[in-house]
Design a protein around this nucleic acid. Structure first.
Lengths: 233, 233
DNA sequence: TTCCGATTGAAACAGCCGTTTGAACTTCTG
DNA sequence: CAGAAGTTCAAACGGCTGTTTCAATCGGAA
């Protein structure tokens, strides 16, 4: 019962009560993404959110608690699995499913509509995983990846458990994440790349095409994936 | 003349004098990569390097100066372009060139031999670019990417200037960087992945195979890459 | 209104952390 | 050896920063 107060407001509460709470979350997400956990002072966050310094301690039980909640909030705002599953027509050809998946992924990651700090925040977690990453992998990433695996398996013409599915799944995701995670370098290499909606669609199309070629080319030649170095050592 | 003392030792000095200096650089690189600039206390660095707390101020004029030098040091240790160009047989088939490129890339990025903190440090620059990133792109990344583009162009059967080259080049690099940049999540999704040398070779082989299939499949169908949204807007 | 819990506010606290200090020690030069 | 310059050391300083405190305010229930 010691955390009764904060728990009550963190779940679902009367909208008025959550006012400064969400303001804090959005402000924190922005600056955490920009400067990282250690690079940010809660005084800055509170100033940006128009809240008192004590508010973060009251609502989130400290800076770390705030960060944890920001991460959840970020992923919650990002592409939801449900949204994806709804968007994917169940009885369409696998290539079309892949197209929907990739395009949705790109849109939710790069398009300006959503809180734009999602990507940076998650990229930070990749480099410097916090305790919150485990929750994130379990609740958000695993189901999305499972969905992708089912599509890949269909395209390869094998069962989901086939070892090749893992690797071609990685090929798909890697080509999606690349454009977000390496933006600074990419924009320096290609100054004419502005990440407009049209360009994002163009890139997504390329990824879909590339992966389709790769997987169709690999069909029936998947023996090499049967023996995997195990890596126990 | 105010910085005469430190300048004298930073350039080239008698080996005995640089002892704690390089020890400091290596220790700092390790922890900076792991926890980021703000997440690191110089007391930790000094403890790891077996140096006194005042040493970093004496040799580098402060924490920031140390970070700056660490970044230079990291670039210097990273995969050299020359090394790559030497390793690639000039008159081999393009697919073999790609194989050498990808394998060398993976080895220099993931294998334990080199200072293993290079990758993380550079990944941090992607998220939170410092002033040093421009130098990095110019001196290290651009020439490597140019080399890759020449290989890709050969495999696609087009000139280097062809717009498709850019995108397939990205497909190759993205699948390489993925395994380094997203290690934490990947290892959570696949606990049996230990990044042993054998596994790294396995992954690199997959990437080469995938990209080969994709590019061979795309040969002759590159019309769609001719019209690019320009993105001026 | 009056009471009570939830929330906000200003100020102070506690301790961490980059930096500085000044002396001791080493090494080289004359 | 004497002296100087370069380097290392332990200790302390200064201020930044997450947290706490406690009083003030708000909002609804009796």
């Amino acid at each position: 019962m010691s955390t009764a107060k904060t728990d009550k407001t963190s779940d679902t509460g009367h909208p008025a009560e959550q006012d400064t709470r969400v303001r804090l979350l959005e402000a924190a997400g922005e600056v955490f993404a920009e400067r990282g956990f250690h690079g940010v002072q809660i005084r800055d966050i509170c100033a940006l959110a128009g809240a008192n310094i004590a508010a973060v301690n009251y609502h989130f039980k400290g800076k770390e608690g705030l960060y944890r909640e920001v991460l959840k909030y970020a992923h919650h705002c990002a592409m939801a699995v449900d949204e994806l599953q709804v968007a994917i027509p169940p009885d369409a050809p696998a290539e079309q499913k892949l197209g929907v998946f990739v395009h949705t992924f790109f849109r939710s990651m790069l398009s300006g509509g959503r809180p734009s700090w999602n990507g940076k925040l998650l990229a930070r977690e990749m480099i410097e995983p916090s305790a919150a990453l485990d929750d994130l992998v379990m609740s958000e990433i695993t189901p999305k990846f499972a969905l992708l695996r089912s599509i890949v398996a269909e395209m390869l013409g094998v069962a989901i458990e086939h070892p090749a599915v893992r690797w071609f799944g990685a090929s798909v995701i890697s080509q999606c994440l690349f454009w977000e995670h390496n933006k600074p370098v990419i924009q320096r290499l290609y100054p004419d790349l502005s990440y407009s909606d049209e360009q994002i669609r163009f890139i997504a199309d390329h990824v879909v095409r590339t992966c389709t070629f790769a997987m169709l080319g690999a069909r029936g030649k998947l023996d090499e994936y049967a023996t995997w170095p195990e890596g126990k050592r």
